[in-house]
Design a protein around this nucleic acid. Structure first.
Length: 489
RNA sequence: CGGGGCGUAGCGCAGCUUGGUAGCGCAUCUGGUUUGGGACCAGAGGGUCGCAGGUUCAAAUCCUGUCGCCCCGACCA
């Protein structure tokens, strides 16, 4: 950013000077969220919630297209239920909130505020599933969950957060595994195509997998500060929960069997990813598909031409709204055009449409792209036909820019020294061979606080980013898989 | 949960060392003039100085405790 540009941004910290302050400033000044009297809990403001609603819409459509239905389960889970699955309770116990009283009376059994809903949903599935004809059960829930985190950050890690959690039950192991991969792909498709955030799909290590899962898969994104962010997870629960919750069905062959289950989720954390991947020194930068306002109209209305310009701007607004665009006319009289430019840039509106007396004379408007600052002219007639192309280009270019950053910050490391140098000096994704031994994974973590984000599903592509020799980055023994290491949020 | 930093008007800060009637910039409100990258003039409103104790004739200032936020580590979406 040039020093001339710097003048335009007075409200937020410079991203390169104080990235953490920048992140918080963007959230507060763009009115996405604010701190509340409750530690670790934020209020999501209308503009931030509108983004989440668009994300919900994109995900919900895909979830339903893949055969799932929405349902709702209780926010409270009896202690005994949570404790049924040993790994599960061990994983979540440190971060659950307890309800001990109802009114003034102490409860005979404590309740946990759900940190995730496996337990309560499994209890219901045990009642609902009798026969192989009842399978598969394909249910999704939109809900809030609570995890008593020690360190919180708006959107990235809050005590209470919003998410969607899918919970499915299947007849066979193969079917469950297909479901796990199907939903991981749904997430990849949504995050890349709607949010313009490129991700690496892969399998989590034993150490990093979900508490109680047989296997966990994730999509991992890379933030502009070089830290990784888990953007979505999909778990194969196998029969772990079915056995303890006694979810059985009578199969075609007359045998009583346990179901195979999956669960998968994404959260409001994705809003944080949006900020960290696309944001710049001017603030938020939203991809058109999830921008609450895709086009903001800023009239240039000097006194002499006020009526003419405002009438035309208003007419344009109506036309674009009818054509299906999310459009906003900023006709406030008390602010100058320049102020409005900054105002909407801070809020990440993908496209600004300026219309003034000179434009009206020429029967045109000025379009300015938020993603690259490019200024275009478009005829007023047929504007509806011209806009989709521009918005699509912004969507596409934002993904391309993020992918370029991801590629440029994906580096190979053959040994610990190389890994450490990259992790400490450049960060980003490090592609390295891993023998599969947890001790090697742990050693990397202890020496440079980087973890294995996942083992990419596309090993062929991963190998091209890794050193040629298939030797474990730590112990040097022959390794079969390439893993992605990074410092993570 | 350990180490460090910060809490003074909506936002950003000064004042604290050396106790003595709470200030600045931006924002807000009113009136007027303005409008192609954060307009100008005039006037006005707004703070029990995070909270609770203590010391003192007197506390934003000194002491103790506590809560919150930020940063760096350990645990997690």
């Amino acid at each position: 950013m040039s020093s001339a540009d710097k003048e335009f941004v007075k409200e937020i910290a410079r991203r390169d000077e104080d990235p953490s302050q920048w992140y918080v400033d963007v959230i507060r000044k763009a009115e996405l969220a604010d701190y509340t009297p409750v530690r670790g809990c934020m209020a999501i403001r209308p503009y931030g919630y509108a983004i989440w609603e668009l994300m919900q819409a994109g995900l919900d459509r895909r979830i339903k297209e893949t055969g799932h239905q929405n349902a709702y389960f209780p926010v409270f889970i009896p202690e005994s239920l949570l404790q049924k699955e040993a790994d599960h309770v061990e994983g979540f116990a440190p971060e659950v909130a307890w309800v001990t009283h109802g009114g003034n009376e102490e409860l005979t059994e404590r309740l946990v505020v759900r940190p995730t809903s496996e337990a309560i949903i499994c209890a219901m599935y045990a009642k609902w599933i009798q026969s192989y004809r009842d399978l598969p059960v394909l249910i999704n829930q939109w809900a809030n969950v609570v995890r008593w985190e020690k360190v919180t950050r708006p959107f990235l890690r809050t005590t209470e957060f919003l998410w969607q959690e899918g919970h499915t039950a299947h007849r066979t192991s193969e079917e469950a595994q297909e479901e796990v991969m199907r939903m991981l792909e749904v997430y990849r498709d949504f995050v890349e195509n709607d949010m313009a955030i490129p991700v690496v799909p892969g399998r989590k290590t034993e150490r990093e997998k979900f508490a109680g899962a047989h296997a966990t898969y994730s999509i991992e994104a890379l933030m502009q500060d070089g830290k990784a962010l888990q953007a979505g997870t999909s778990h194969n629960l196998a029969q772990h929960f079915a056995r303890v919750f006694d979810i059985t069905f009578l199969d075609e062959d007359g045998q009583l069997k346990y179901v195979y289950q999956t669960s998968w989720g994404v959260t409001t954390r994705l809003v944080g990813a949006l900020i960290l991947v696309h944001g710049d020194d001017r603030g938020l930068k939203l991809p058109p598909r999830i921008a609450p306002i895709q086009v903001v109209i800023v009239p240039i209305a000097p006194k002499k031409a006020r009526e003419t310009v405002l009438a035309k701007a208003s007419e344009l607004e109506a036309r674009l709204r009818n054509a299906g665009f999310r459009v906003h006319l900023d006709d406030r009289e008390e602010y100058s055009p320049g102020y409005k430019y900054n105002h909407w840039e801070l809020r990440g509106v993908p496209l600004r449409l300026e219309i003034g007396p000179r434009d009206i004379e020429n029967n045109q408007v000025v379009l300015v792209r938020r993603d690259n600052g490019e200024k275009l002219f478009a005829g007023i007639d047929g504007l509806e036909e011209a806009l989709p192309g521009v918005l699509d280009a912004i969507q596409r270019d934002m993904l391309a820019a993020a992918r370029k950053f991801l590629d440029e910050n994906s580096r190979p490391a053959a040994d610990m020294a190389e890994m450490e140098k990259i992790i400490t000096e450049k960060r980003g994704f490090v592609y390295a061979w891993w023998c599969g031994d947890e001790a090697c994974e742990l050693e990397v973590k202890e020496r440079m606080s980087a973890t294995i984000r996942n083992i990419p599903l596309d090993q062929q592509a991963a190998r091209q980013k890794a050193p040629a020799a298939a030797k474990c980055v730590h112990c040097g023994k022959p390794a079969a898989e390439v893993a992605v290491f990074a410092r993570a949020y």
